[in-house]
Design a protein around this nucleic acid. Structure first.
Lengths: 339, 339
DNA sequence: TTGTATGCGTTATCAT
DNA sequence: ATGATAACGCATACAA
């Protein structure tokens, strides 16, 4: 029994033609109940399993491609988990590639998705423009958690989220508020929007942006020791901010480390607010106030969009840019300003 | 340009037969350099992308199936990330399914892997025996991070790991050592081995197991509030252990929370050691001493095993049970016993 | 070295 | 209601 049984095997075992077997498999109504039963029996007798590869040559493949920068990033992992779960409900499988942030590798990895003729590609991180070009316009693309000009996306209103963060802080009496976002070189769009929202929130409160309260250096990796140093320098400076908005929970974690090392108490001497609400942020040792992403809804909408396809009018794709409202989760890293 | 170009399109564009194109694609040496160049040009002109589905009918598919219980679990996510990365090096893609711990869903999800004719299945969590039966013996299976009787596996010597943990603790003067492992109902095998190693370590040090220092209740979920209560009860008891071995870093995180709430200082009043060394364990606020899994090596060996296949002798598969040595990473949750 | 013929497992079209 | 047959895109054995 080396090779697995085919519909032909099933057909001959059930004494019918392969067309009939196919009809049963497709749930067509034009097949006699008795015959159907006989076919089903043969299928279970032989342990027949459909061949998705062969099927995909005649039907739309039920596989979704997911492109993620780094699965080690808990935000990505959690989002991918939700997507996988909901995709399964929609009878779709997940072909996952992670680019590792390497620009040249990305193109190669995404190419494998195309070769597998995935029904659509979901981007959890922003791709190189070259990659996008390679994919072409025929393959549906959905950006989840981020926007992309001229592309379908399901994301959260980060601009508003950052405003929420600032409002929360100013309501607590903070006026010297910093923003730290280094290491987001791979997601410049998100970083930019969150910073713009931050700026707008500051302006709204009549506050000025202070250069020494800002840390937006690009090209830093999270593991980078230098990065810790940069944060510590910002925190150690005379007239340091009394509150900080971190562009990511992971960055907030770094700020916490830096503050701990400097003996700066959170939230007594420094308020901190993050973005995304990754799982660990809820832990009692962290208890990070943060702007949460509604991951479940994000995943659901993205998969629906990818599976059902974007409605096509005469001129081509109709753009769908869904934007969900953010939500502030208050925990214990933010408190009233003591100054 | 609705449908994507095929080798036939490439062939006619290059003025050769489709076999020649195929030969070029396969890197066969029996094709003239000039012709090869012409074909390559045609491929790039037309933007030809191979059809993996069609190809998989004639060749061994270059796709690996990964079964993971929960991608939200950072240990799983990190391991999956490493696997994906190395699989890419080996020119293989990853079809990922997560079972969500639901026994009946598992079978369905794994079935999709079979339908896609994956070259092998990698289990990051232990499957139902029914699922295993359904897969049959023809499809190579590799268990990574856990062992399975009669199956190929790449894992870490958890028994030794637990012994290491106990030795570390006894060397620090601890004699009242507890073990907490609830919520591992989905991985009873791992839990069992780690507990056995713990027991053996205790015996080795001439220490007796104390019932009230053990928490091995099954069927608890991590989010479960009751679970926190159970740990707190263990910690609040008179004559509580001075040190605890947690069967997982995630459980250790729960122990930390419980200790914090009870005002028990770590490591001054309680030493704690975990398992797996997930990323967050290295954070300064956690700084968990733990038994690390060599994830990279785990992933590499598992993928190699899956891709290269297990050598087959006359009697069938040759079993490969690779077991890697664990490594203790000492951070700041363990200290000398004060009693 | 290149081209032809065939098979892979499935679905879709068209007769019956 | 059922069956024969033609695609689908590719690789391979074989013929030229």
């Amino acid at each position: 029994m080396r090779r697995s049984p085919t519909i032909i095997d099933v057909a001959s075992h059930a004494g019918v033609s392969k067309s009939t077997v196919s009809n049963v498999l497709q749930g067509k109504s034009n097949v006699d109940a008795t015959i159907r039963e006989r076919v089903l029996q043969a299928i279970s007798d032989l342990g027949y399993q459909a061949n998705a590869g062969a099927r995909s040559m005649r039907q739309r493949p039920k596989v979704l491609g997911i492109v993620v920068g780094d699965l080690t990033n808990p935000y990505h992992a959690e989002l991918a988990a939700h997507i996988e779960r909901y995709a399964a409900k929609r009878m779709h499988s997940i072909l996952l590639v992670s680019t590792g942030g390497l620009p040249d590798a990305e193109s190669k990895r995404v190419r494998t998705l195309i070769e597998h003729r995935v029904a659509a590609v979901l981007f959890l991180s922003s791709p190189e423009s070259e990659t996008l070009r390679m994919i072409g316009a025929d393959l549906p693309k959905v950006f989840v958690g981020l926007t992309m000009p001229g592309q379908n996306s399901v994301s959260v209103n980060d601009y508003l989220g950052a405003q929420l963060a600032v409002r929360h802080l100013t309501a607590l009496g903070h006026r010297e508020i910093g923003f730290v976002s280094a290491m987001l070189a791979d997601e410049p769009r998100i970083e930019e929007v969150r910073f713009q929202g931050f700026s707008s929130g500051m302006a709204e409160a009549g506050l000025r942006l202070c250069e020494t309260h800002l840390l937006r250096e690009k090209g830093r990796a999270l593991g980078d020791g230098d990065y810790q140093d940069l944060i510590m320098r910002l925190l150690a400076r005379e007239g340091r901010p009394t509150a900080i908005v971190a562009a990511l929970d992971r960055i907030a974690l770094e700020v916490i480390s830096a503050a701990d090392r400097l003996g700066i108490q959170i939230p007594n001497e420094l308020s901190l607010i993050g973005f995304d609400d990754i799982a660990i942020s809820g832990h009692s040792r962290i208890a990070l106030t943060t702007i949460a992403q509604p991951m479940e809804e994000l995943a659901r909408l993205a998969v629906d969009m990818a599976v059902d396809g974007i409605s096509i009018d005469g001129n081509g794709m109709r753009l769908a840019e869904v934007m969900l409202p953010p939500r502030l989760i208050e925990r214990h890293t933010t408190g009233r300003c003591k100054d």
